[in-house]
Design a protein around this nucleic acid. Structure first.
Lengths: 197, 197
DNA sequence: TGCCGGATCTGCAAAGTTGCAGATCCGGCA
DNA sequence: TGCCGGATCTGCAACTTTGCAGATCCGGCA
């Protein structure tokens, strides 16, 4: 059982990410320097930027393993299923541990505009990956055919809006209900609401 | 006819934006420094950051006047119209001059990944504005009710994907056709395609 | 004309970000 | 054990970005 370089790399990333999140929660994103994060993770400041493009990304950064899980779940969805449903189910998180830290980060991003950009960038990166996955499922060209990317972009928009709305009305426990509502609206073509409340 | 401060401010912004775009097109985004842009626009480097948060934003930056035009067009749409249609029409650009520079920027963003983040950030800023405008039209709470933001987010996703697709298949002249197709798909709830080509 | 007040611009210092070159570490192999 | 090769980490210099304090500009008004 070799503790290979790959595992060490994942550990370093985790250490930096954990230190960044903890310090940001404690002192606010602006109250933390990269040097602080580096010291807490016991690496050089330069190494922080080997793993994350920006300080904000170090704070919000999504674990690559989690992204891989989403991709794997997408690949396992039944073949004929509606693409929006496949994506919704692939992204649904029933892992309590992951969900908690994910909510903490979403809330942090909502409260601190300086994190907004990095937060959205995370969705964009996921969009690129999911587009390839969905195109493969549907046997479509991911770059020339707009359909896969359009469905993924809409699905991520729905997810993002649902999460933000759950946070805004302070009901993060019912996250799944909010997500379901947004996806239902999207699948129906966003009909004019009579009473969407 | 006073050449008031407001006009001078707009002129300075234009000068910086134009210099940034020109230099970026000539030498690539990475081949231009903020000092270069500042010198070309005849201001201090510090002033560049008074108008734009980042060098990338200075290159891609959307003219606030253009955003105001979109908001004005949205307000003028008939009352009972489908929200997606209202948004599509508000964002449709028939101004040849504006459209050309817009395409140049979209292409530049597509070709240089370093601009991706700033490009998406522009859409996010527009999302916030349009959400308020649409909520007002529909008389809904823009923060507690997810509907306005969801529709806007989906509309912008459709627009973004359509533009990217038109660039990818090298048919930017037919931009409107691409946008219409994406919006039609979205209004129909993104049905599984048989032949979306 | 000459002053006032606000808007705009600038200089400076500290922090963030990146490319590059080299140091270090670690597993595999003789 | 001792070396090799690649992956990882680090130091450094240039550039980017931000907060702050002050300089400058400009229109309005006495």
């Amino acid at each position: 059982m070799p503790t290979g370089r790959r595992e060490r790399k994942a550990e370093t990333r985790q250490a930096i990410s954990a230190a960044a999140l903890e310090l940001a929660l404690a002192h606010g994103p602006g109250g933390v320097t990269v040097d602080d994060i580096a010291a807490a993770a016991d690496v050089s400041p330069r190494t922080v930027f080997n793993y994350f493009a920006t300080k904000e990304e170090a704070i919000l950064g999504v674990d690559p393993e989690r992204r891989a899980e989403v991709m794997a779940r997408l690949a396992e969805r039944p073949a004929g299923e509606s693409p929006l449903v496949s994506l919704r189910e692939a992204m649904r998180s029933d892992d309590p541990h992951g969900a908690v830290s994910w909510r903490a980060r979403a809330r942090l991003a909502r409260e601190h505009p300086q994190l907004q950009s990095a937060y959205v960038a995370g969705f964009t990166a996921l969009e690129d990956e999911l587009t390839l996955g969905l195109a493969a499922r549907l046997d479509l060209d991911p770059v020339r055919d707009p359909y896969p990317r359009l469905v993924v972009a809409v699905a991520l928009a729905a997810l993002r809006v649902a999460v933000q709305n759950a946070i805004d009305v302070d009901q993060v426990e019912d996250m799944n209900a909010f997500v379901d509502r947004a996806f239902t609206l999207a699948s129906a073509g966003l009909p004019s609401p009579r009473s969407s409340s």
